[in-house]
Design a protein around this nucleic acid. Structure first.
Lengths: 203, 203
DNA sequence: GCATCGATCAATCAATCGTCCGATTACCTA
DNA sequence: TAGGTAATCGGACGATTGATTGATCGATGC
């Protein structure tokens, strides 16, 4: 990796930090420059504008996250273990580089075309992989697959708002509890029936 | 309700719209003024500053959401039905006033003291109610209660990023699918055991 | 019909924004 | 050490920000 590329990595690290803590819109170029110990003008040797910085952060994060998941899933074939792998890989990445995933979940809506389109492609690919893992469970219906996948993403992407290392343990522990919740549910032996159907439906 | 209070409601509605669509930071006072058909100066008859507008939107949303959930839960006592009530109430509110809940989930981090503290109190109260519903399930352990509650919130608060009325149906349908997922899970008859424990643990 | 008062307006303030640019430094090669 | 390129700096630009002001509008009470 050249010196330029190394410095660029540092710049993107600083961007992720600032974006995650202040939000893209209220993070100024001068904030970022200060975080990477550079003048605001000097930043423009590593991007074409502020939008491009957000794009580069998101792209790098999505690519490395996807690469890790592909690698981890390649050696796991049992459905339940694959589900655990999804949780564990994503959560481990979050604990390792929280600012990147926070930027991804909190500031992706600030990304404008054409960058937003490219990121959406990476996002869709990640979705397909996770959705494929869920599809291997026989209980999943075509109707519930979409909701289940989105529910899983919601669960994972919300972690950064409440996670505390001293209370919630490491990624493996969290992944175990969440996997268990997704496999069992709260009351595995009962089927919920809305009140309007309770006279005729099973309970 | 006085004329002033009516106009104030309209102002807050407009704020919620603009905050939800542009985000608090990049929403300017002029954007809000245009949305409520008023000059930027005139807005300051209904707030002390821009922060106060965000606070008022969040407070109003949290109070009415909590009131609805309290009311709905007061006549439901069976655990599974109470869980469904949580989903249905929250999702119905989202479909009815999406901009308010989007503002709540996307822009709460832009709220500064002292307003943020007051909102956090309302938030905690809402958490306690939902957590209480989950606690009534015998399968819930003390360790998993926190994770389960936060997972539930993550699932619900993520809906605004993917929901499409034509694909995903109304609030009752969505609540039914999500309740089912939380009760059953994906593979209710199996218990997940991490690979490292597979030699000795049950499977 | 006059006075009063809350509501709203256009105009404006200093501050900060993203971006750009010429000057300057740092570093590598010959 | 000389020369050239890449990296960085500090200051400047016009535009926009949140906020404030005095003037004006319209309804209400007397």
């Amino acid at each position: 990796m050249t010196g330029y590329e190394q410095r660029r990595e540092q710049v993107l690290d600083g961007c992720a930090h600032v974006f995650a803590e202040k939000g893209y819109d209220s993070a100024s170029i001068r904030d970022i420059a200060k975080a990477v110990k550079m003048s605001s003008g000097g930043l423009y040797h590593y991007c074409i504008n502020k939008q491009d910085l957000l794009f580069q952060v998101c792209e790098r994060a999505f690519r490395s996250l996807t690469a890790r998941l592909d690698e981890a899933l390649s050696s796991v074939h049992e459905p339940k273990e694959r589900l655990y792998t999804v949780f564990a890989t994503h959560l481990a990445y979050f604990l390792e580089r929280p600012h990147e995933l926070i930027t991804l979940t909190e500031n992706l809506s600030s990304l404008e075309p054409p960058g937003s389109g490219k990121i959406r492609t990476l996002q869709r690919r990640y979705y397909e992989v996770v959705s494929g893992v869920l599809k291997s469970f026989p209980e999943i219906t075509e109707e519930s697959l979409r909701v289940a996948t989105m529910t899983l993403f919601g669960s994972i992407n919300w972690v950064h708002t409440w996670y505390r290392r001293d209370v919630d343990g490491d990624a493996e522990n969290l992944a175990r509890v969440m996997t268990d919740l997704f496999l069992h549910g709260l009351a595995p032996s009962y089927q919920y029936v809305p009140p309007s159907e309770q006279e005729t439906g099973p309970n």
